[in-house]
Computed example of a mutant assay.
Amino acid sequence: MSNPNLQALTDAGVSIWLDDLSRDRLETGNLKELIEDKCVVGVTSNPSIFQAALSKGDRYNADLTALTKAGKSAEEIVFELTTSDVRDACDLFMPVFDRTSGIDGRVSIEVDPRLAHDTDRTNEEAKKLFEAVDRPNVYIKIPATEAGLPAIAATLAEGISVNVTLIFSLDRYRGVMNAFLEGLERAHQAGKDLSTITSVASFFVSRVDTEVDKRLDAIGTDEAKALRGKAGLANARLAYEAFEEVFSTPRWKSLEAEGARVQRPLWASTGVKDPAYPDTLYVTELVAPGVVNTMPEQTLEAVADHGDVHGDTVTGTYAESREVLDALDRLGISYTDVVELLEREGVDKFDKAWDQLGDGVKGEMAKAEA
């Protein structure tokens, strides 16, 4: 039996994805249980998630030893281990993929974050990952940096489905949607079947509140305190407004007539960082038709336990959301400064996690060689 709160969320048009992947989840049957009981229809991963997975337990030890003895480098081993886990997860989600005609049942794997500012190498890495996983339901994650936008278009043009990650600003989100449309147009010109190319755009939520609230606390006035915890939701809701606008244009309609599917907004960073806020805040207050919400397991369990799903909480909030951003601007909090900082920090965080992942593998390699 599916959990009633999570089923209500699904019925409201939200696809529930888990923001975590590990060999432990795969081999213990935990992920299968989440699919069956918690309405989970997809998975996202990133360098931080893989670094955490490889640092715990011993489920990777045999492969690490074998690959080390085969003379593989640390980077080759990371590639082998991560693509193997994603391939196995893709197989697990294949029934969901088939049941939803390829909309859900998706598993994401990220390009090397050190390439975030290199268009050509990002595109090459995306193709390499796609070929290695070799499953139709894999999403290749590409960050929405300035260099990432043309790589997104180029990857989609090759017929590879993409999860665009690290989106913080409304302007950049519009750039992402433009790259999506451009990629589909190029794919169509090349004779590719547009119905097989899909994408999600991962718009980050809680990190916006973390940064904005810190600045509001520094101001400390009653007006500032009243705006705490509102920026993340306002930003995401305005992103949905942009989504509705772009996917009602003649440019999109012509692609849709050729079989193309919309690039769905995906709410990422939905775990609540401030204990003063409800732990389901970035789920129940971002319900809208045709979105994805990728949740850490703690958030998923919170929604299952006490999430109050009360219909669409996005459509019709746009004027109120604009007023939140305007009020922040009046207090001297620069939206541009906040989102640019968050993008830099997001790339840096994944860079560091990638380095830690490599260091951890090197440590295990040393044990295998001893």
Rank of each mutant, 00 (worst) to 15 (best):
A370R: 13
V43A: 07
S84V: 00
L34D: 01
H306T: 04
Q356K: 11
G363H: 06
A147I: 00
V107I: 15
G148R: 01
L81G: 04
H117D: 15
M1P: 12
A153Y: 05
E223V: 11
L31Y: 01
G271C: 10
S202C: 12
V162C: 07
A154I: 06
S202W: 05
G29A: 02
G13D: 11
K225M: 09
V96A: 09
G29C: 03
V283Y: 03
P265L: 15
E211R: 13
G191C: 04
T122N: 03
T280P: 05
E323H: 12
Y240S: 04
D217Y: 08
G29F: 00
A190W: 07
A154T: 13
N5H: 14
L67F: 14
R121W: 00
A239M: 15
N123L: 10
G360W: 05
F243L: 05
L357H: 08
S169E: 04
T315F: 03
A257H: 06
T65V: 14
D171C: 00
K32G: 01
E343N: 06
R114A: 07
L18S: 12
L328I: 13
T119R: 12
G148P: 03
V176T: 06
G183P: 10
P275L: 06
L328W: 07
A154H: 00
T294G: 09
D329Q: 12
S334A: 08
V41N: 10
A239C: 15
E364S: 13
H117F: 15
M295G: 03
T280S: 09
E345F: 02
V41E: 06
L341W: 02
E158H: 09
S55C: 10
